[in-house]
Design a protein around this nucleic acid. Structure first.
Length: 590
RNA sequence: GGUCCCGUGGUGUAGCGGUUUAACAUGCUGCCCUGUCAAGGCAGAGAUCGCGGGUUCGAAUCCCGUCGGGACCGCCA
């Protein structure tokens, strides 16, 4: 080893020892006759001081620059009185440089590594290896490691078996778009990268593994968001002989221990509250409510149904939220909220301000709605003087989408919530199917293998829309953090579901024949869940984008700015893969 | 597929039709400096304002296009 100690372990009790450190020049302070550098490695910072007595070392110290890689040997000593630094973990000691060797020099970095400054995202991604040197990124990598290590340890101790599943898998047109991998040996055929190990973990249950987990990389070729990358990591879990409650408990127990062991964050409520999908939609407009905000949607459809105001009376649903204390908003501010809800398909935003005398002082619809109705509206929405009522009238889905988003926007402004809060909940009882207008058929709302709730089985033939699945989502601070279900383990029921969603027998066998066949060989009842590791670590790190907790993330255009991927392939490679590129880019390699 | 925001020395920003020879901070280079820790002082280098076109007597500034980054809708659990 080129070092005897790390910068992080050098403490007061090392005084007097002869040590060798190695790392990067974090910062230098050159006083001419005396030079200080802060030497950085993964574990910390140590001040190195030059002593003119060691002339050679003294000279080299003066020539050091930011991010040079150096090895320093010398004596650890206590700092003189008045020269200690209480902000530094090793602030009461320093290393006297007897011998300094420059292991590697560095160009001036393209951005400051030793300061917390905002740097343009593209630059950070291009020089990710430098970005990762910055303390908060290192901290995030560390937290991610600790999170995964905790999970592995916890589940292993609970008798789960970690099993790896293939990355080269089979395309399944259902769900998200697949990443395809052309086959060299099989002309015109393709593997697909797994969107999740869903089928494989179920087959592991057929195999008798009973308790499985995997830290699994998943791939989905869809457009990016702050909480979505084309490749991401799931904690994938599957268990046999369990009921929904067992899965929920497994996760809730693990998460509770994880959070208390690794962070100083606190759950807003324990045990986690549970909502049916229906209740979540009614109260918050979404199946992933951010419970840090107390605001709830109020249904006033009935109340305004007889109103002169056509927009209200003719709408499928009219709901609103009370933006408490926002009565001071200017017309311009309210207009910008109107533009905001229009993104979600709302035609507009109806609003009313409650004045100091408890009457409506300003409103977009006051002249169309009588006083009695207006008072009922105020009462229903628990409006006080100074409040701003915001209503959307439209189709129910649009009302929910737009108000759910508006609720967050207003909540962030008016709520004071502790950033250390984790507001987790379970959302359960999702409908098993959604009616697909275009295709005129039922679509699975989760995935094909979700078991119907036993008590709803009777509706399967008569009214599929009424059937709820044994499906559950874990939601935290408004992010869908985990989702899973109890699966169908019966070949016959599975085929019935395939039929309902319009999957022809031949197609079903071609795509899922292996599942149906497997289910004929003694399949245990089973179910599971998958936790989004990137999102989880993002919340624990209190970051707003999962890029911050992924070492080498993709840009919003799904490119890697550091290595320049995707890139053209050379013609020989393409020929071998039986691929002929239509309209090839200019830089295709001949 | 769509909407919006950003692009000015290495970095982060200001300037938003003419006293701009493009400013400030930081970084960088050199010199001075023995107790600093965002060290300090002095001096200096460094940008044809992402790219292309247009409007104008005149464009970093206005318009169109394009490229790159980001936020969001659609998409995606």
């Amino acid at each position: 080893m080129l070092k005897t100690h790390t910068c992080g372990e050098l403490k007061h009790d090392c005084i007097g020892q002869e040590v060798t450190l190695a790392g990067w020049v974090h910062r230098r302070r050159d006083h001419g006759g005396l030079t200080f550098i802060d030497l950085r490695d993964r574990w910390g910072l140590v001040q190195v001081v030059s002593d003119p007595e060691y002339a050679e070392a003294h000279e080299i110290m003066a020539s050091l620059r930011s991010e040079y890689v150096v090895q320093v040997s010398g004596n650890v000593r206590g700092r003189p009185d008045g020269a200690t630094n209480p902000d530094m973990a090793s602030g009461d000691i320093e290393l006297v440089a007897k011998q300094v060797e420059i292991l590697n020099i560095s160009k001036t970095p393209p951005f400051d590594i030793n300061k917390i400054t905002r740097v343009e995202e593209g630059l950070r991604q291009k020089y990710r290896y430098l970005d990762l040197r910055r303390s908060h990124m290192l901290k995030n990598l560390h937290l991610r490691h600790n999170t995964i290590a905790f999970i592995r340890n916890h589940l292993s101790q609970s008798d789960f078996l970690e099993v790896e599943t293939p990355i080269l898998f089979k395309t399944t047109p259902e769900g998200a778009r697949d990443y395809l991998v052309p086959s060299r040996l099989h002309k015109g055929k393709f593997y697909a990268l797994p969107q999740s190990p869903q089928q494989l973990k179920q087959l592991l249950m057929v195999a008798g593994v009973e308790k499985y987990f995997q830290i699994a990389r998943c791939f989905r070729d869809e457009d990016q968001r702050g909480d979505r990358q084309p490749e991401f990591t799931q904690l994938d879990i599957e268990m046999s002989f369990v009921e929904q409650e067992d899965v929920l408990q497994t996760i809730e127990v693990m998460m509770t221990q994880l959070v208390s062991n690794l962070t100083s964050m606190k759950f807003q409520q324990t045990p986690w509250p549970r909502f049916s999908n229906e209740e979540a939609l009614n109260r918050f407009g979404t199946d992933k409510p951010d419970l840090r905000f107390g605001i709830e949607l109020q249904d006033v459809t009935e109340l305004v149904s007889k109103s002169e105001f056509k927009i209200f009376s003719s709408a499928e649903a009219v709901k609103g939220i009370n933006a408490e204390g926002c009565g001071t908003y200017t017309r311009k501010e309210i207009d910008s909220l109107t533009d905001f809800v229009k993104k979600y398909g709302a035609g507009g935003l109806a609003w009313a301000v409650v004045g100091e005398d408890d009457s409506i002082s300003r409103s977009s619809f006051g002249k169309y709605v009588d006083v009695v109705t207006m008072n009922a509206l105020k009462k229903k929405m628990q409006a006080k003087p100074g409040d701003l009522l915001l209503l959307v009238a439209s189709e129910i889905d649009i009302v929910h989408d737009s108000l759910a988003a508006l609720r967050i926007k207003i909540g962030e402004k008016i709520s004071s919530y502790d950033p250390n809060t984790l507001a987790c909940c379970w959302v359960v009882d999702f409908p098993l199917f959604n009616w697909n207008e275009q295709e005129n058929r039922w679509d699975p709302s989760h995935h094909l293998f979700t078991a119907p709730l036993t008590e709803d089985l009777c509706h399967l033939k008569t009214d599929p829309g009424k059937v709820r699945g044994s499906q559950y989502d874990m939601v935290c601070n408004g992010y869908e953090m985990a989702g899973g279900s109890i699966r169908i383990h019966d070949s016959e029921l599975q085929q019935q579901i395939f039929g309902l969603i319009g999957l022809e027998q031949s197609v079903a066998i071609d795509r899922f024949g292996h599942m149906l066949e497997a289910f004929e060989y003694g399949t245990p009842p089973h179910g599971g869940i998958a936790v989004g590791i990137d999102r989880l670590v993002m919340l624990l790190a209190q970051e707003k984008n999962i890029r911050e907790v992924i070492a080498f993330p993709k840009s919003q255009q799904a490119t890697d700015l550091m290595v320049g991927a995707p890139s053209s392939a050379d013609v020989d490679q393409l020929n071998e893969l039986h691929i002929n590129v239509v309209d090839p880019p200019d830089d295709i390699i001949e």
